[in-house]
Amino acid sequence: MTRFLQVVWLVVRKDLRVESRNKEMLVTTLFFAVSCVMVFAFAFVRGGRAVDGAAAGVLWIAVAFAGTLALGRAFERERYQDALRGLLLAPVDRPAIYLGKLSGLLLLLAVVELVVVLMVALMFQAPLFEHPFRMLALLALGTLGFASVGTLFSAMLVRTRSRAVLLPVLLYPVTIPVLIMGVSGTNVLWQPEPDLAMVQLWTSLLLFFDAVFLTLALWTFEPVMTE
């Protein structure tokens, strides 16, 4: 187990180091997410008041689109100079490589979400700090569900020519339940008088989906990566 976690950390540290040098994924995803929120703010905020329920939708659309952009790049850097083969040749449990890539991606998305959530709260007057921990749980679990499937698909498609087209085509149908739960839970939470039991239900459902997605991804990563 220690070795497994050590490999996860090695992959995360390597990805963070690469990202700190070129800032490619952070800049593109952040720029895209911020632009997304800005455009929707112009459409859904009239006379200083946001359309009811729009804030939750905008938040999750920004997260999903920015996440897709990041997922598309996550294995791209492993494809360059065929570094992925170097990784796969190492005598390690391959799910550890998957978890390392996933963790790096989650850290990146956490930075993006921090900015996006604050922007949505500001522009749509969302009561962000009413229930901060419930909001954090919804965001964390939703992002984990989305990214766990996305990382697996990104790895699967790394050797295909039309991966940029195929990734969203495969990803969205599978992750739609996660996005719907995220939007629904956030929408309930941001009501003037939120039904906390409903929020709890959506959070629990997200947790269930995450467990299923993560288990399946860890289980299938090894055969998926064998040529």
């Binding site: 690469v18 100079q81 170097g86």
Partner: peptide, 14 residues
Amino acid sequence: IGFLSHELQLYPEL
């Protein structure tokens, strides 16, 4: 097993 492929399996940013 040590494998040097035609693609060099290095990370150019590191």
